[in-house]
Design a protein around this nucleic acid. Structure first.
Lengths: 151, 151
DNA sequence: ATTTTATAGTTGTATATACAAATGTGAATT
DNA sequence: AATTCACATTTGTATATACAACTATAAAAT
């Protein structure tokens, strides 16, 4: 459905405004859908993100600022996210012995198991939307979003 | 910048996953930028959205569920958003005399003034990003996002 | 007329986000 | 060696979001 219909806009909309609303609305749709997948596993989207980053470390610990810079929402509070994961035994954390300012965060086996259980659902989620586009359109969309962002 | 560089991804990413991350990250960039514009006016993005919807009513009151259905984030709490706007005298609210279940929300002159002050900044914000694309690319991006969403 | 169902909005609670200030540690400067 | 500066993380506070439960009113069914 076109964005004007969704938001029941009465006035015609500039295409520049439409992009903004389309991106924001699409993000909402994606996120709502993804939260449904996560709900039975009792983790939030941002918690999932942290686990995914930690798995990507392949056994190496990640400290807080490494996690932060790889997250989508740069302003979210990594300390408190890790706290939540710690309570569920999905990660471990200890002070880095070489530099005691840093914290080493590692994903546990239990954390890896949660991700493994989610993997097929996550792939299905990604394809649920992208199946509406052909391979060329998918590339175009990625390219246009990247071009759009760059000031 | 490409999304893999931004998120410092070590593993190659499927194009379907890239779209998700690109949409979510682009939304973050847009929202952060927009919040900077709103900050001096001391309203949040969602509060701005409500005001914009009320102005769109052109003098007719909007009740809570009308506001809700025109908002981007369908799950946000309209009652509390309107509460905040009420405290700042940007809207009025009264019980609808014909149907006492409904609430009539109207934007005040002060609310209209805030929007008027923001209008040029909002347009500049929209064009700040879309200037990276030509007219055809802008249309394409809107079209692809709409097509992508439709299940 | 009373009960049931549907609609509109509010409130409670837990969690998340935004932003600033504070703490602790290490490196550089004087 | 003491001071200053930079870095890494945590904490505090206000606000926002997600979701469920609740209240009030209206419409429909019996």
């Amino acid at each position: 459905m076109k964005i004007e219909e969704i938001l029941k806009s009465t006035v015609p909309m500039d295409n520049s405004k439409k992009i903004i609303l389309n991106v924001l609305y699409t993000q909402n749709v994606i996120t709502e859908n993804f939260n449904e997948i996560l709900k039975p596993h009792e983790i939030s989207g941002e918690q999932y993100n942290v686990l995914r980053i930690l798995r990507g470390q392949k056994g190496n610990p990640a400290n807080m600022c490494v996690i932060q810079e790889r997250m989508l929402a740069k302003t979210s509070n990594t300390t408190r996210l890790v706290d939540k994961l710690l309570l569920k035994d999905l990660v471990t954390r200890k002070v880095c012995p070489e530099n005691r300012r840093k914290i080493e965060v590692l994903i546990t086996q239990k954390g890896l198991d949660v991700l493994a259980a989610l993997d097929p659902k996550v792939i299905a989620h990604e394809q649920f939307f992208s199946k509406n586009l052909n391979a060329e359109e998918i590339n175009q969309l990625n390219h246009l979003l990247e071009k759009y962002r760059n000031q």
